[in-house]
Design a protein around this nucleic acid. Structure first.
Length: 193
DNA sequence: AGAGCGATGGCCT
DNA sequence: GGCCATCGCTCTA
């Protein structure tokens, strides 16, 4: 595909990037095997947004979000889970797209083993489930998503009419903003729309 | 030192 | 779908 991850994502707003990433493929390689899937649900965050980790400026935790587009921003939550974002926009903008749900494509058996479930719809239907199924943790924070062992393959942009925008999940601030993007009618999203 | 933050699984309806 | 129990990191003080 003729897409340049860094260039493509670096030009977009968080919201546009959230839309752009739908339908793209995420691939993860480990010693126990490779897994992959299609991104079906995303959420946008940028520095103007009270719900964003970057709202209060640069910190030790969020510095990756101010770095180059196409990097992974991995954060720890609930004392037990990881979530993975794709950094987007020009450097310094402090924007990212949270990956919320993925349609499993390859390595399904390995993902099912890691997730302790065989229900394919429940393997990657949530941001922390993605990290568990894809074996993503803090070591991949700031990783360049053009390269193994974790990389993105941008797909053709999804037609706008196939995307549903809703309120983001699990946040306190800016709840009314419609910055959650889902592929319409996908059975693999974290919460049906 | 302490408040704030939030995803999942299990249960139910 | 809703309700509930579960925890440790991050930031500001």
């Amino acid at each position: 595909m003729g897409f340049n991850l860094h260039k493509d994502l670096g030009k977009l707003s968080a919201r546009d990037a959230a839309e752009r990433l739908l339908g793209s493929m995420l691939v993860r390689e480990t010693a126990s095997g490779s897994v992959s899937g299609i991104i079906v649900e995303t959420e946008a965050y940028d520095q103007s947004d009270k719900a964003s980790h970057t709202y209060r400026g640069l910190t030790n935790r969020n510095y990756v979000m101010f770095g180059p587009a196409g990097s992974s921003y991995v954060y720890f939550t609930y004392g037990m889970h990881y979530c993975v974002n794709v950094v987007v926009g020009p450097e310094g903008m402090g924007a990212s797209v949270l990956l919320r749900a993925i349609e499993p494509l390859t390595g399904i058996e390995l993902m099912a083993f890691r997730r302790l479930t065989t229900d394919i719809r429940k393997i990657c239907n949530g941001p922390a489930k993605i990290c568990q199924a894809f074996s993503i943790n803090k070591e991949l924070n700031g990783h360049d998503l053009k390269k193994p062992p974790l990389y993105l393959e941008l797909n053709d942009p999804i037609a706008t009419k196939k995307i549903v925008w809703t309120e983001r999940i699990g946040i306190r601030e800016n709840k009314t903003l419609l910055w959650r993007a889902c592929i319409k009618d996908s059975p693999f999203v974290s919460r049906q729309v």
